[in-house]
Design a binder for these strands. Structure first.
Lengths: 239, 239
DNA sequence: TTATGGATACTAGTATCCAATAATTGCTCG
DNA sequence: CGAGCAATTATTGGATACTAGTATCCATAA
């Protein structure tokens, strides 16, 4: 059963003693959860983690608290801390919220983003084309984040994208699972180009239309995944 | 001088040893920050807090980590933990995000919320009228939350409102500060009624218009506050 | 006025405890 | 052979005491 769904590729850097350990460990665990090295339902032990990371329990607890606030993990008293299953309800609400936010952002951006910001966007998309050619999934996804952040930043609301991060984490879990049969990068790039074209044309309506179409792609493979990996999900129509 | 801007009114319940202490302490500190018992820039000491609450440092650190994730507090290495000043930039981005979300919610609600949900909304507004008569600010604000949650819940996206909580915390800080010269409750209630009227009429456009007008009221006193209490804010045009 | 040095206070992290409880294991008894 | 019970183990939540490193404040001296 070779369903190791993931292309890790992300190096695990050693811990930097000059930076607080808690946030560093959080990032490591976020990576492991997103890439399904740690799978939904799996149980984590504070002692095990602290031993394997070579730190005490304290910073591990710090990290687990943060993960709990982000909804990636849940503490079960006297039993352990388990990786949450992907809650379909909150994925859907996340999609709703993100769509509302991004549509509002892109409308504003069409009205008043500066040409220099649009230039940046075009460069990011070019970089994405290179990433697709080299089949570098990780780089592609990270550029995708950067592009959407730039949309928000171009109207002075980078903070909006930042506060959507926790919401996006849940969507990203789905996204990493779908990497094998994801929407082809070429199509996503075309959609990005369509959005930027609308910005250049200062046409808010078609910018929104293009964005809406783009976002509808993001979770397109979700139903297939739920059928293939029911144990990873929660709140599905399992009845 | 006598700028204790607050009507506390919120009893501080004793700690319940059957529930994890960290989240409880977080709630207590959130209340103190929102009500300006703890003021922006003020420094918290883990030792002091643990002594005054009668617990060890561990659950206090737990609470401070959570507050840090919510952006209400910032750890200064080797110095202390300070209550963040209210960042005008993130308040504005919060407003933007919330407006985008609530406009999308209310449009959907006009299209497909169930009559029973609308009934609930009407009851909440009635309760608000009673709260205004009794000048019970705390109850009014809490009913306000409940109403907006019900808007989202009526289209099955209660989670949206839940994920907006952290954003709303920053806006709430402003809100509590403005209690003295806030928008009169009667006006807010009229706006609520206008929104619900539009839902009953299944008219998404006027629902959105009414909501937009309502939300624009929320931060109306912000500029005045920034002038009166510049120390509480960050990123203002102080130059 | 400026610099220096010391006292102080603070978080970050480590290392051990203890308490309560869920899960598991193994034993006993029918 | 199976059911029920008791002991064991592993877990988080919490408490306590300690070290390290650093920022801050203040008095004193040049």
């Amino acid at each position: 059963m070779g369903d190791s769904v993931v292309t890790p590729g992300i190096a695990e850097k050693a811990l930097d003693p000059n930076e607080a350990l808690g946030p560093q460990i959080k990032r490591i665990l976020v990576q492991r959860i997103l890439t399904n090295v740690l799978r939904p339902g799996e149980r984590l032990s504070e002692n095990e983690l602290s031993a394997s990371l070579g730190v005490s329990r304290q910073p591990v607890r710090d990290a687990l608290i943060r993960l709990g606030e982000a909804g990636l993990v849940r503490a079960l008293p006297q039993r352990g801390t388990e990786v949450t299953r992907i809650d379909l309800q909150s994925v859907d609400s996340g999609r709703f919220l993100r769509e509302a936010a991004e549509l509002a952002v892109i409308r504003e951006a069409a009205l008043r983003s500066k040409p220099s910001a649009i230039k940046t966007m075009e460069q990011i998309v070019s970089a994405q084309e290179r990433a697709v050619k080299q089949e570098d999934h990780a780089a592609f996804l990270s550029l995708d984040d950067e592009l959407h952040f730039t949309f928000a930043a171009s109207i002075g609301h980078g903070d909006v994208w930042r506060t959507l991060q926790n919401v996006k984490l849940q969507m990203d879990r789905v996204r990493y699972l779908s990497l094998p049969d994801a929407t082809p990068g070429k199509l996503l790039i075309q959609q990005h180009k369509a959005i930027i074209r609308a910005l250049n044309a200062r046409d808010p309506d078609s910018a929104q239309t293009a964005m809406r179409e783009h976002l509808s792609e993001l979770l397109s493979s979700l139903p297939r995944l739920v059928r293939k990996l029911p144990d990873y999900f929660d709140g599905s129509a399992s009845a």
